[in-house]
Lab assay of single mutants.
Amino acid sequence: LDITFHVDGKNIHVHGASEEVVRIIEELIKNNARAEEIKETLERLLR
């Protein structure tokens, strides 16, 4: 699975993920999660 995301100002662009995963990533970023935390969360979800 190949998910890429980047933050452009306040806009979060996520590619290669389901809508549910996109929402989770957006929440994590809004809550100022570190990249490592986001990665760990995604790995748990995608197991």
Rank of each mutant, 00 (worst) to 15 (best):
I25Y: 02
I24Y: 08
L1T: 11
K30C: 07
I12A: 01
E19Y: 13
D2N: 12
A33R: 08
K10Y: 14
I3Y: 15
R44I: 13
K30T: 08
I3E: 02
L42R: 00
K39L: 15
I3P: 04
D2H: 14
T4S: 10
E40I: 08
R47E: 15
V22S: 03
E26M: 15
I25G: 00
D2W: 12
R47N: 15
E37R: 07
E26I: 14
R34A: 13
E43Y: 10
D8G: 11
K39R: 14
I29S: 01
V22Q: 06
I24Q: 07
R23E: 06
A35I: 15
L28I: 02
E19W: 14
T41P: 00
E19A: 13
G16L: 09
E43C: 06
H6P: 04
E26S: 13
I29A: 02
V14D: 00
A17H: 01
I29M: 06
L28G: 01
S18G: 07
H13Y: 12
L28C: 03
D2E: 11
A33V: 12
A33C: 10
I3N: 03
E43H: 09
F5G: 01
N31M: 12
H13W: 07
E19Q: 12
A35V: 14
K30W: 08
K30P: 00
D8V: 02
G16I: 05
E43I: 08
E37W: 08
K30R: 13
A33W: 07
K30F: 10
H15G: 05
N32H: 12
L45C: 00
I12V: 07
I29E: 00
E27F: 12
S18P: 11
V7H: 06
G9A: 02
K10F: 15
L46H: 04
E27R: 11
V7G: 02
E40R: 10
A17E: 02
G16V: 05
K30A: 11
E37C: 05
D8F: 04
L45M: 06
L28S: 02
D8N: 09
V7Q: 03
H15F: 14
V7C: 03
E40V: 11
E43A: 04
A17R: 01
H6S: 11
N11G: 07
H13T: 12
R23H: 11
T41C: 07
H15E: 09
G16M: 06
N31K: 12
N31R: 11
T41A: 14
S18M: 03
K39D: 06
L28M: 14
N32T: 04
V21I: 14
I3V: 14
L1C: 07
I24M: 06
K39Y: 15
D2R: 06
V22C: 03
E40L: 12
I29F: 04
A33S: 07
R23G: 06
E20L: 07
R44E: 14
D8S: 06
K39F: 15
R44V: 10
L45H: 03
I29G: 00
L28P: 00
A35M: 14
R23F: 09
V21D: 05
I24E: 06
V22R: 09
A17I: 14
G16Q: 09
E40G: 09
I12Q: 02
V22T: 04
E26R: 13
I25D: 00
V14F: 06
D8Q: 06
I29N: 00
H13M: 11
H15L: 12
V21R: 00
A17G: 04
T4V: 12
E40H: 10
E40C: 06
R23P: 01
E26V: 14
F5P: 01
L1Y: 14
R23D: 04
K39A: 12
H6I: 15
N31W: 07
H15C: 04
L1A: 09
L1R: 12
E36P: 06
E37G: 02
N32L: 05
L46W: 05
T4E: 08
H15S: 13
R47A: 15
V21L: 13
K10M: 15
L42N: 00
R23A: 12
R47C: 10
I24G: 02
E40S: 12
